[in-house]
Design a protein around this nucleic acid. Structure first.
Lengths: 233, 233
DNA sequence: CGCTCATTTGAGGAACTTCAAGGTCAGTGG
DNA sequence: CCACTGACCTTGAAGTTCCTCAAATGAGCG
């Protein structure tokens, strides 16, 4: 079980809760036969460099993905070149359910390690072990809740979206003093349904209003949490 | 098993597939002991009139909901009175997973019959019967896929959203000649993240361009499916 | 330094909302 | 049968937000 310590190492999570990873690890710890079964259907962890595809479309039907380190994104490029980021996946997130329907591309948003779990094997394991089944259900309902939150965000004005994004990012990263944003502005803009220009202007305005301060590059300091919370509505 | 014929009666589905309902019925048909178990934890079907709340917030933690007839919506009213419709639920849809997080209200979008299934009982049943477990997982991944599609729609222009909504509605209602829209324009606008005025203007423009025709009130005829498909991108 | 890539800033325009008014339709009571 | 009412949809004009295009600035790196 050498490979599973990553769950402990990477217990910073941004949009996904780290609970999932903890639960995943518990599954391993409790039952040695289960460990063997899961390890048997595991491939990886495999490293991917930023902006590279994690799976071919065909493979996604066969595998579920588990993020070990870094950030993965699922996104769609429409005719005209517009890109939408549907979700970011962080260490501890299990995903890859629905991508056949909208033909979403899974890519590395930063250098990333991903575990491949054979879908059919995992599902048949779930019929035999109810802990696996309820883990899968839990992971899926969590992702559903996050997606609904994302959806609600999209019908709010730009400033609110950015304030919400930064605040939640900060909370997920453990509410440390300085927020080190691990995405490119283009990724954030595509996630929030804005252009990079609008995103930049929003951040500049937050800075001018003293709600946040820029330390360096993508390192920020959230100064006025009350005002930010108010802006989130 | 008298109560379960509704699945056959209401096999028109709009955003949810009726497959779910069919699967649900199959669960009952195959196993008499399972039937008894599920019926034991069922309450209803209960009737609700349009715009009424289906559950109090507390109840939603205890129950999952299954739409028998009509349309339910989950929505959130923000400060300022803006309302967002996160999803419509149609006959055969099982839902109610995630609403504690964003405090979504479940309401009847038309006169509606809903079945209440005790959450804890259903989950413990799932640990004993893997068919129930995989049914629950299936229902959840389906809803996740629909929510992701909805999310993608929100970063497209208004005309595209409306064309997509109408086309998918038509497809889900069985591709019958005339599309009888079962929602109010306010519900649709809130679902698409638009104002009723913008929605109205879009529909009027679709009519002027001969892509659709108005028969009467909320009854429409989709005339140019090719052009509609092109507008959806 | 000089290159490239990412971010910032400005000006103008398109898309959508807001506000305000008018129209349609079904139900209701005269 | 007709006018009245209220809910719902439509339309116009003005305003706001966000996008597009274009250019400047800044950051990282060989």
């Amino acid at each position: 079980m050498a490979n599973l310590d990553f769950v402990e190492r990477n217990n910073q999570s941004i949009f996904g809760t780290v609970d999932t990873a903890v639960e995943f690890k518990k599954l391993f710890d409790k039952d040695v036969s289960l460990q063997r079964a899961l390890l048997a259907l595991q491939r990886g962890p495999v490293r991917f460099y930023r902006d590279n595809h994690v799976v071919a479309e065909d493979d996604l039907e066969k595998y579920l993905l588990f993020v070990v380190s870094g950030v993965a994104r699922s996104c769609k490029v429409c005719k005209g070149g517009t890109r939408s980021v549907v979700a970011f996946y962080l260490p501890g997130d299990l995903f890859g359910w629905t991508d056949t329907k909208h033909s979403l591309a899974i890519e590395a948003a930063s250098d990333t390690e991903v575990l491949f779990l054979k879908r059919s094997s995992l599902l048949s394991l779930a019929t035999r072990d109810s802990r696996v089944a309820s883990f899968l259900l839990d992971a899926t309902t969590n992702e559903l809740a996050r997606t609904q939150g994302h959806l609600l965000l999209m019908s709010k004005p730009a400033k609110c979206r950015v304030a919400t994004f930064l605040t939640e990012l900060w909370a997920r990263l453990g509410k440390v003093k300085y927020l080190d944003v691990p995405f490119s502005y283009q990724d954030i803009a595509d996630y929030l349904g804005l252009t990079i220009e609008t995103l930049s202007r929003c951040i500049t305005e937050l800075e001018r209003s003293r709600l946040i301060a820029r330390i360096s590059g993508r390192k920020l300091l959230l100064q006025n949490h009350f005002a930010l919370g108010h802006m989130m509505n």
